[in-house]
Nucleic acid binder design. Sequence first.
DNA 1: CTGATTTCCTAAACTAGATCATTTTTAAAC
DNA 2: GTTTAAAAATGATCTAGTTTAGGAAATCAG
Lengths: 196, 196
Amino acid sequence: MTNNQQIIEYIKRTIDLTDQEAEIFAASFREVKIKKRQFIVQPNFIVKHRNYVIKGSFRAYVVDDHGQDSTIAFAIEDWWITDYNSYILQTPATMFVIALEDSIILEISYEKEQMLKQSNHKFETFFRIRAERTAAFMQQRIISNLTQTAEERYDRFMEKYPQIAERVPQYALASYLGMTTEFLSRIRNKKASKKS
Amino acid sequence: MTNNQQIIEYIKRTIDLTDQEAEIFAASFREVKIKKRQFIVQPNFIVKHRNYVIKGSFRAYVVDDHGQDSTIAFAIEDWWITDYNSYILQTPATMFVIALEDSIILEISYEKEQMLKQSNHKFETFFRIRAERTAAFMQQRIISNLTQTAEERYDRFMEKYPQIAERVPQYALASYLGMTTEFLSRIRNKKASKKS
DNA sequence: CTGATTTCCTAAACTAGATCATTTTTAAAC
DNA sequence: GTTTAAAAATGATCTAGTTTAGGAAATCAG
């Protein structure tokens, strides 16, 4: 399966498209290879692309005044990643997005996306549904942060996204879940010793 | 200004509409009066409406296993409120949404909203933009929860939404910000004594 | 008005999770 | 492969925020 076919399959899971429409959609993306540790988003620049991951993995994070970094999002194959606020509102980025492995992405520019949405009601629907699901996902995370303990958040993450937990460094997962690496290490250790 | 005119003004701030389109949009909503302490959403039911607040205020919250409640959202005049996940994904609600004051809302049903979006590209665009801004707002909140201390979160809320802070009970604000009422009381007290 | 219910405040004891410092393990780079 | 750097583990100490408990204001229903 080519990379274009992959994103066509992806969009067809959300909306029906004719072959010609699928062609137009896929043609709006550009394939880019990214090396491990390479940044695709950096603070203060206005983000120009939304990125669909074909292969590899990424981490989006912010660094606060005290030098602490907090992971905002992960992405692996078939996920999207960017600095959402910067891309949507076309304001300067506050995040870094870095490749955790050698990766391949399909990027679409802000302008191309606007054109797609204007040109065809179906594309508008697709991006509307994407935004809704993004919001629904984020709301779940807010609820989780407000109501669960560090250990409960970890357990739930392991249930829902075991394939991500395997691939990302522990410090990144800890800061995604809102705890220190040390504390996550302890949680894991406790579980490992209980099993035996 | 009638309540219909109010929501027409609202949508026109996002997209341009002809008078006829504005008419169709406004006609999809139904005005409902809600008494203080009345619930408009309760757990386990699938949420049928998205609600635009004409007058009054609301609080959306979840109650966890230990009986603790966490405020997920507030709404005052010109804001929307519902159990977002339940409405968008048409799954059973996990939240309560309660009126904090005697209120008036305009509600639109899930079916009517689907019809609007299908019938006119512009309405699809409107709801796409709403979803994007909702996601952007939620992402800001996630970042705030991950990176800031309780006091910083409070300060920032007071800066951005002073008019909400005034109108909602302290325990509701505390649980929105992810802290106990007692701790919020202490923060406020500390600030009050410093000023003198 | 007035009794009842909600909301808010204060303060002491407590704990989940953070911080700090050091060691061990793993992975990157030459 | 060997050196070097990054990541993870471990233990000791500390602290931001919680819990518990009591009383004082404010709000509300009748």
